[in-house]
Each structure stands twice: as C-alpha cells, then as structure tokens.
Design a protein around this nucleic acid. Structure first.
Lengths: 308, 308
DNA sequence: CTGTTAGCGCGTTCAG
DNA sequence: CTGAACGCGCTAACAG
C-alpha cells in the first residue's frame, strides 16, 4: 500500500503538502495540488486510517454491543444503527453479549483506544459498571447517563387496552425481570385495567421467569384461567403461541398473544399483535448522543400493529 | 487514558521494559516486572490498540460486509462469525450492502488499513471487482479466490426428493438469478426428477424474478398447476406461504413450500421444511481462510429439517 | 504558500 | 537485563 511518502516523492512536494491537499485543501498552489492529486491517483493512494487515528486520537469507530438474548431482535437495531453510523462516516464494531459479565468483557476489549464510543443495545439484564459510560439503547437497567429509552408503560397500556377491546378479560402478563422497566410495564397494565374499572388479579402477573414458555407452563400448571398473554418480546410471543397450540389452545381465538416489543416486524404482516418501534428514530437519537447532543429525549413510543 | 510513558515513569523503568513485561515478558528482573505490573494496575493501563496497530501493521479487525437482501438472514451468519472471530481475538467491523456498488463502496472504505481482511457474506448478486480479494461466504458470484461455498445442488436434490416422497409431482422452482448457483440448483432438481423417472416441466422453473411473491403471481396468472414450491431462502418461503393463503391454497396440504436456505431456523421448530446449514462450521472455515489456511474446502452441505 | 520538525503510543532494534 | 533511539503514517505548529 502506497504511503504519504511515496506520494510526496512522486509529486515532488513535502508530506505536509500532500496532507494539506487531501485534508483541508486550502492554501495550496493549484500546481502543487494537481501534482499531488495526480500522484495519489497513480499510486492509488488512500490515507492510512490507523495513522490518522493515532494522530487525531479519534478512530471513527463505534463499538456496538448487542446484548439481546434473542439474536433475531438484534437485526433490526443493527441495520438501523449501521445505516445511521454510515451516514455519519462512522464504523460499527460489532460484539454480541448476553449477560452482564460478557458485556463487561466486551467493554474492556473495546476500550483500548479502538473505539470512540460504546453503545449497548437491548440488554434485558443488569449492566456492569463498565457500561456506565456507554450509550444505552433500549436497555432495561438504564443506570447510565446517556440513553435512548423506550416507553414501556405506554406500550403496555396500549397493549392492554387493545386486548380489552378484543373482549379479553383475563390478561396474563409475563413481565421483565424485576426492576424499573418491569414496574413501568405493570403500571401501564394496571392503568388500563383501572380505566375500565376492572380488577387486578395478581396471579396473572409473572415476572422474572427465565422464559415465557416456562412462565406459561407455570400458569397452566396452576390452573389459572386466561384468555390473553402479554409478553415482552416478539420471539417469546411466537414461542408461547407455538406452545399454546400444543396445549390445544387456539391462537388467537381462545388466547390472544401480544408482544410489547416488535422491532422485528419483518416480513409484511406480523403474526401477532405487537407494539413496533421506529428504529430509524431510535438510531438517530443514538447518533445524536454520540455527537454530544442533548440527552433529554422523551421515551420512545411505538405503534400498535395487528395481523390482518 | 494512561499511556506507556506514565507507566514507565511510575515504575521507574523505561518504556521498553514496560513493553517487554506486557508483551512477551521474558528477560526481565522480577523486581522490574512487579514494579511495572503494579504501576499498570494503579493507572489502569491498557496498551493503545491503535498505536499497536500502527506499529505492527495489523489491526485484528475483520471487515464483514453483509450482503443479504433479507436482513434477517444475516443474523445467523453474524452471530456465528462474531463468535469465531472473538475466539480468535479479532474484531468484527460490520457493514450492510445489498447491491454490487454498495459492496464496492464498503470495500473501498474498509481498505484503508483499518481491516486486516474483508469478508462478504450472502451476496445474491454479482460482486464488484473490489471484492475479488475478499473472503466470500455463501456468495453466488464466487469469482474470488477464497470462499466458503454451499452445495446448492445437493440441497435442491435433497429438497426435491423430499417433496417427491410427500407425493408432490408438480414442483415449482423459484431459482436464483441466472448464474452458476442457479445452474447447480437446477441440476439437483433435475437429477432428483430423473432418478424417479419423472418428466421435467420447463414452465415450473422461474429464474431471476425480483421476488418469490412475484414469481408466484406469475405462475398463478398463467394457470400453471403446482403442488409444491421450492424457493431459495426461508423468508421468501414465508412470504409465498402467506401469499398462498390469500389465494385460498392451504399450506402445506395443497401446496408445500420448501426453502433451500434456512440458516434462519430460529425459534424451535421451523414453519416450513428447509435445508439448514451448520453455521458454526461455516464460520470456522471462514476464519481458517483468514489465517491463510487451505482454501480447498468441499462445498458445505446442510441438513433436512421439517416441521413436526 | 511550503518544507521542516515534532509528536501520537507502541514495538523493536542495538548498544551498554 | 536495560535504556536510548528509531520507525509505523499522518497531522499540526512553526519557521522560512
């Protein structure tokens, strides 16, 4: 690979001039400029990004730690983030991690000067201290300073209202692991019930179960009646829908399954009703945070999407 | 961020000694070693990756260009690749691109010394010249030197055989855009038919249509009878299955949909029969190629997976 | 306007 | 075993 020295030699000018021409080409003779450009063209010269980084102390690389357990969720986020980062001339350094210590390790390995910043996306578990500095996107444990949050209270309220309009009265809720986000979801769920003057049945709420399938089994084992299931992500929704069929419970006729997070509404029509978030907006906010913009975004609200 | 100078100062030794201790700590007094380690600990010193890269002319970064049109497909690949790369202490620089010129641009922007190598994954379109040097993974236009290919002939043969055992005799094939891969698929399809002494119906093969849905519409418009659909990827399969239902054709009773590429068998049971590839193997081969290992892998063969 | 010089942080000689 | 010195490729400050 040709270096700046090769170009300066061929163009008969100094390295500095070459640098000037290719960076902020101001204050350079047209003659020198041409010579440099021609030489660069001939040698197919591209400034070495590493050297530029060392000199400028900025790499244009953003470390993105995908902390989503269901990897499929990650895709939507990744695609949106990559697009926005690309538009801002930044590179996306990808890393998967689905528990606290893996995130910690990823943070460590990315904090060696390689990245200008780190983002953690979609974590459903408590975050390590190492992630405090990171931009948190749709993370439940939003202890960091900079974050793009999602309005889960609004989502669960919308979802519950929708289910009520569908004549469902025994809505089971499989909530996040206990924490602020779970409280918000519960809050929205309760508000919706209250607004219709309906009683709250504690037995229908299950929090912190390892998976929605397990939660569902528990519900069934305990012979608790339900005609709707509110789950926290789309893939859990598909999972329980599948399981329900095996229990001979028709979906959605007998039991309606609703997902609070459907950033993954992929191929045309969704199979389950869900709340879908505008990923582009999410990504744009993330970029704004990186650029040091204001961090006082309102929680992001999604749209109700239903099959048919 | 503390630099090597800070450490050397605090430890009362020279930079060289610090470097020695933290790299190949051989030939250093235990005393100096301790002093350095302690100082590094205190300062929370991490060698600057960029400086190391500049010096060593190697970044440990691998550029991965995801060229999959259906982004969902990418996820499986990405997860597998990231894992293997991580195990080899390499970073994954992600880029999406779904046409030839986007791939070319991505290659250009990643070939500035930032990456040690570039991989292109899942391209279903002709690749630009710029990608010749890259490691090609499941790319149809495998004009490059280093590649991890998939045995599509084997896949389509398996698929066709399976459909035949399901008493399907009018199997429509929605093939890749014309090219070597499409030929292989067609070859496998024909072999399977021949082995059962069945005739080949040219009208049932559609190649290079923009999407499987469009191809399906064409088939229906022309009143061509079919009882099975062989498509090239899982999401197209879901798409046509959905469309078939709208045409009142029961899936899989009346029409069975089969996908040749199901790296995306995600949540437990698949909804459609498919050929699923061992992504871990795929990723391991990719890494081997990066390490300069032999590039004479046999085409990768997948497994038949069916619902229930 | 241009060339020279001095770092950026690190690895690696090469003498001592 | 250790430290001083050089180079990786580039940018920025400083003289001409």
């Amino acid at each position: 690979m040709a270096s700046i020295n090769d170009v300066s030699r061929l163009a008969q000018v100094s390295k500095a001039t070459v640098s000037r021409v290719l960076s902020g080409s101001r204050g350079v003779t047209e003659q020198s400029r041409d010579a440099v450009l021609r030489a660069a063209e001939i040698l197919n010269y591209k400034p070495n990004a590493i050297a530029q980084s060392l000199s400028s102390q900025t790499t244009h690389c953003i470390g993105v730690i995908c902390a989503t357990e269901h990897i499929q969720q990650a895709t939507g986020y990744l695609q949106a983030l990559e697009k926005q980062l690309r538009l801002h001339q930044k590179h996306l350094l990808l890393r998967f991690a689905n528990n606290s210590s893996a995130v910690a390790q990823a943070c460590g390995e990315l904090s060696t000067g390689l990245c200008d910043a780190i983002m953690v996306v979609g974590a459903r578990f408590p975050l390590p201290e190492a992630a405090q500095q990171a931009v948190l996107i749709d993370c439940l444990d939003a202890s960091g300073e900079q974050q793009v949050g999602i309005d889960y209270e609004f989502a669960s309220q919308t979802a519950t209202h929708y289910l009520l309009t569908q004549q469902r009265r025994k809505i089971a809720l499989f909530n996040f692991y206990p924490g602020e986000a779970a409280d918000q979801v519960l809050q929205g769920y309760c508000s919706a019930l209250e607004s219709m003057a309906l009683p709250f049945n504690r037995q229908l709420v299950i929090a912190g179960e390892s998976s929605a399938s397990v939660a569902l089994q528990g519900l069934i084992n305990r012979h608790i009646a339900f005609d709707a299931l509110l789950v926290t992500d789309y893939y859990q929704g598909l999972e329980v829908a599948e399981l329900l069929k095996r229990y001979q419970r028709a979906v959605p006729q007998e039991v309606m399954v609703f997902s609070l997070d459907g950033s993954a509404a992929i191929f045309g029509q969704p199979h389950l009703p869900l709340i879908a978030y505008p990923l582009e907006t999410l990504a744009q906010r993330a970029i704004k945070l990186l650029s040091g913009g204001a961090s006082d975004f309102p929680l992001l609200r999604g749209n109700l999407l239903t099959p048919y």
